[in-house]
């Protein structure tokens, strides 16, 4: 009985959304930045979040990441209602953000960046020293999982844009994040590296991580996303499976040529 019950448990968990937003709204004084946004993201799903500048994308991302609380609405993470006071609270439940300007320290190695703020230590009497070997080994493992050729002991300043993304994404794997939000990961890099980054998103998906891709680049969104959500003037105007829409439709939704879909 008990075993059957335990075995039955994971199945509903898989069908449960990682993140569920209900009626999220945000006002800054008299300015209404977001209004009534509902959204669900499932494990292993890649969602493209699109919209023009000022459409409310970053406000939404910042609310999910715990930078500030919503004025209205409810955030549910893995079925539980959550309130994030600080970004660290969001990270604690398993939400990671990969920032556009890649929050990496150039002067440190790839491994050091992966473990920044979460360094592995080994005790030496009363002192705890950095465990360089263990960190390099674990980082190599993570890069292997992502099928990236990044070497743990290389300095980040010597790396290409794609490799930097790999380092930033490896950080999220280290904490076993269940939802990774990526802010314009393909904006400032070459075509070949865009491919690498899209590959990285596939790896995350394979491992059951939900990914929210905030991007202006239509081809990238259509290459990796399962679903696209379009924001306009603080409201969600569309939420469609990629197969049911086209770049043209999404464009008209973003610009407002088409009101909603």
């Amino acid at each position: 009985m008990v075993t059957a019950h335990a075995a039955g448990q994971p199945a509903p968990a898989l069908n449960q959304p990682v993140l569920e937003l209900k009626g999220i709204g945000k006002e800054f004084g008299a300015i209404r930045a977001l209004h009534g946004v509902d959204m669900r993201i499932f494990p292993g799903e890649v969602i493209g979040l699109m919209g023009d500048n000022g459409a409310g994308k970053s406000t939404l991302v910042k609310i999910i990441a715990g930078n500030f609380p919503p004025s209205h609405g409810e955030i549910r993470f893995a079925g539980e209602t959550v309130h994030f006071a600080r970004p660290i609270d969001a990270r604690a439940v398993g939400i990671e953000v990969v920032y556009q300007d890649l929050a990496l320290a150039d002067n440190l190695t790839a491994a050091a960046n992966v473990f920044l703020g979460r360094e592995l230590k080994r005790k030496l009497g009363p002192f705890s020293l950095l465990d360089h070997k263990a960190m390099a080994a674990r980082a190599l493992e993570l890069f292997g999982e992502l099928r990236s050729e990044t070497r743990p002991d290389d300095l980040v300043k010597q790396m290409s844009g794609g490799q930097r993304q790999a380092v930033a994404i490896a950080r999220t794997r280290l904490s076993n994040a269940r939802l990774v939000m990526m802010d314009e990961p393909t904006a400032a890099i070459s075509v070949r590296q865009v491919e690498q980054v899209l590959g990285l998103i596939h790896r995350l998906k394979e491992q059951g991580v939900a990914v929210m891709l905030i991007s202006h680049r239509m081809p990238d969104v259509f290459a990796v996303c399962d679903r696209v959500v379009v924001m306009r003037r603080g409201e969600k105007r569309a939420d469609k499976a990629i197969g049911d829409t086209s770049p043209e439709e999404v464009t008209s939704l973003i610009t407002g040529a088409k009101e909603a879909a």
């Binding site: 970004p87 953000v97 920032y99 929050a103 320290a105 150039d106 920044l116």
Partner: peptide
Amino acid sequence: KNEEAARFSG
């Protein structure tokens, strides 16, 4: 090198 990155890292 990058105070912001360090802050984001907790």
